[in-house]
Design a protein around this nucleic acid. Structure first.
Length: 283
DNA sequence: ATGTGTTCCTGTCCGC
DNA sequence: TGCGGACAGGAACACA
């Protein structure tokens, strides 16, 4: 689930529970996710205030009062579940952790945030806030697609001479940071560009047209995700409501929704990942 | 330097 | 219902 719009939705959902709040205690229930947790993570989190919750690409960044930033990546299946203040004045009591609840943040006001990740492709690390962009996971990232550094001349320049399919290029986080498999499919569908086209072979005009489409698709998805925050607060943690707006992704065999197209969505595999597209209107 | 295939891990769904 | 295989939102890594 977590591409840029989902991560941004999670971030916004976490703000009321975490931003400006003190982590009374962090319960680190295993030594690692994808990689080992940093040394003494629980101790470095406990008692610190979260000054600000930010996002960079698909990473959530929690700036702590200690001068360190907690970096959180949700991987493929990571979720942040919020439980409200437990009832009862004296017997504060949250339900016991469930399977795959790996890190539990107990906030000073009684709220609890639980990081749950069945597949454990997620990650957490701590790093000095003032040098955060130098962190090895963040340093290679390309520009934010919704930021000013991402524009038509940038994208044209970066794709120049590339022999890789445009689908693969847009998934490359060093070129543009935040797109994943779903939104690349949606973007290329809306742009009418075949995912198999070599990136460097597309005209500058067609590449330039991608830029506002990327912004639009991500923006719409964030808006859609935002309205699912009510569900998010519940324990199921399932966002997945923008899926009703998919035009291509996961729609194999279904008719292409584009005005006057009449094509049928096809599924192919590119560098090991599913691509959904309409062969008749994506050229 | 680029491009591609494999790998980490668990859960779910589909066909037999 | 059980069992095996394919597949899932990511992306580092090894290798041609």
């Amino acid at each position: 689930m977590p591409e840029l719009p989902e991560v941004e939705t999670v971030r916004r959902g976490l703000v009321p529970a975490m931003e400006g709040q003190v982590i009374a205690r962090a319960d680190v229930r295993r030594p690692d996710l994808r990689w080992q947790f940093p040394e003494n993570m629980a101790e470095r989190l406990g008692g610190k205030r979260i000054e600000r919750l930010r996002r960079r690409s698909k990473y959530i960044l929690a700036d702590l009062s200690s001068g360190e930033t907690l970096i959180i990546h949700l991987g493929m299946s990571g979720r942040m579940l919020i439980a409200g203040k437990p009832m009862g004045q004296f017997h504060h009591h949250h339900p016991a952790p469930e399977r795959h609840d790996h890190v539990v943040f107990d906030m000073q006001d009684g709220q609890r945030v639980t990081f749950n990740d069945a597949r454990r492709f997620g990650a957490m690390d701590l790093f000095a806030t003032d040098r955060i962009e130098e962190h090895w996971l963040l340093a290679p990232l390309g520009p934010e697609p919704l930021g000013n550094a991402f524009d038509q001349s940038y994208l044209v320049e970066r794709l120049k001479g590339r022999n890789t399919p445009i689908k693969t290029a847009l998934l490359d986080q060093r070129i543009i940071a935040g797109l994943g498999n779903i939104y690349v499919c949606e973007v290329l569908h809306r742009a009418g560009i075949a995912p198999t086209r070599k990136a460097g072979q597309l005209s500058a005009a067609r590449i330039a047209r991608l830029v506002p489409i990327i912004r639009d698709v991500l923006g719409e998805a964030i808006e859609a995700g935002g309205s699912s925050l009510k569900d998010y607060r519940q324990a199921d943690g399932d966002l997945g409501y923008f899926q009703h707006s998919f035009q291509a992704y996961d729609r194999e065999g279904q008719p292409c929704g584009k005005e006057g197209c009449g094509g049928k969505i096809k599924r192919i595999v590119q560098s090991g990942r599913s691509t959904f597209y309409c062969p008749s209107c994506q050229r």
